[in-house]
Amino acid sequence: MGDLVWIFFSSMVVNNFTLMLFLGLCPFLGVSGKIETALRMGAANTFVLVMTSLAVWVLNTFILSHAPYLRLIAFIIVIASLVQIVEMVIKKLSRALFRALGIYLPLITTNCAILALAIFQTNRDYTLAQGLVFAVGSGGGLALALVLMASIRESVELADVPALAQGTALVLFIAGSLSLAFMGFAGLLSSG
């Protein structure tokens, strides 16, 4: 139980995917303009991460032990088709959820956070439970970073920023400061 809690916090704040490991930067820079969209993107990401974690565990346990060199190709195919299936199922089951997540789901296929989760999970030999906790933790971390970024950007919109720094440069400065703040969590790891 203890190591599950540790995995959860480590993946959520200490080794935050976006701010510490630079994974999933495209949505972080692209769709972090509004808090609401950021929340939905975070939710969609977490959902796909959990599904991926499940699929990767099945792949690793039953199939890839026979052909380890196919790892990367198998992961990317499974993730791409999984996202497609999830999209179809959600569309059938819940129109409201589909409308909320709809446009973000296809984008997630090429999000490096998803493939990275699969690779980390394999490299660290996580069990099913550990993998799922890891997926929820990292999804939560992604959502946290997205929402923090969106709320800062919403306030900065009213500020008088020099024309030169507007756009991506400003977002990167904010991201750097957030990353700096998250470095404070590193202490949790060594003491815990």
Partner: peptide
Amino acid sequence: VIMVLPPGGFFTLAFVLLTISW
């Protein structure tokens, strides 16, 4: 040291982009 840590990456890219837009 901060430059080789994650925040340094964000700051360096921000400065590079600033230079380019200037």
